[in-house]
């Protein structure tokens, strides 16, 4: 038995932003952008309900639908469309991390939004919570806001999903850093 040195085979990324980034603040007058996908209908239903509630609070809502074809010429089109979408909003809500690769793309798109300085919240389901945080950290933003929805979700009917949206309405605003009681002078 002999002791000696071996060389570390791992590589790590050195930079990390631990801050969650700016709060969403008051919603009045803001444009909130929902990033949807082509896989999870449950996320569509939840986004519709949250969007309606945010509009009641004085926000304008936009939707942008991504898909998993992020390579080649199609991928370039998607990247350009995402960039234009992010430039047109004030707050980003990015989902849904509900599988491995789609959590990957959810986090990657959320990082794009956060790196533009937008108040950004990624949405993942419980099973993919840890993956979301790990990918955010490896993407250089361990502080990325991630709101967690229950799992399973997409396997449920709409009538079962809608209550989930309402149950999470307050908590997702908390994650986003929404100021739900803006001071009167701020509204003036």
């Amino acid at each position: 038995m002999a002791l000696g040195n071996v060389l570390d085979p791992t590589a790590i990324r050195a930079d990390d932003i631990t801050s969650p980034g700016p709060d969403a603040g008051p919603l009045t007058g803001k444009t909130i952008g929902f990033r949807l996908d082509e896989i999870w209908r449950a996320w569509d239903w939840i986004a519709e309900i949250w969007a309606a509630e945010f509009e009641k609070a004085g926000a304008t809502v936009k939707f942008w639908r991504s898909h998993q074809g992020r390579t080649g010429a199609e991928g370039e089109k998607v990247a350009k469309a995402l960039d234009e979408f992010l430039d047109s909003i004030d707050i980003a809500v990015v989902g849904l991390g509900n599988c491995g690769s789609c959590t990957g793309w959810t986090i990657r798109d959320a990082l794009s939004a956060a790196n533009k300085g937008l108040p950004t919240t990624a949405i993942c389901t419980e099973v993919f919570k840890e993956l979301g945080h790990q990918l955010a950290a490896r993407g250089g933003r361990s502080g990325l806001r991630i709101h967690i929805l229950p799992y399973p979700l997409n396997e449920k009917r709409r009538a079962e999903v809608e209550p989930v949206a309402f149950e999470h309405l307050q908590s997702v605003q908390h994650t986003m850093g929404v100021d739900t009681h803006p001071r009167k002078e701020a509204l003036a």
């Binding site: 038995m1 002791l3 040195n5 071996v6 060389l7 085979p9 791992t10």
Partner: peptide, 23 residues
């Protein structure tokens, strides 16, 4: 790369070490 002192003559001893390190 960072150096780690460990058993280097015994493949299985090193393998156990490497597994503990997550390598």
């Amino acid at each position: 790369s960072q150096r780690h002192e460990t058993e280097i003559d015994d493949v299985m001893a090193f393998t156990r070490y490497a597994m503990q390190q997550g390598w």
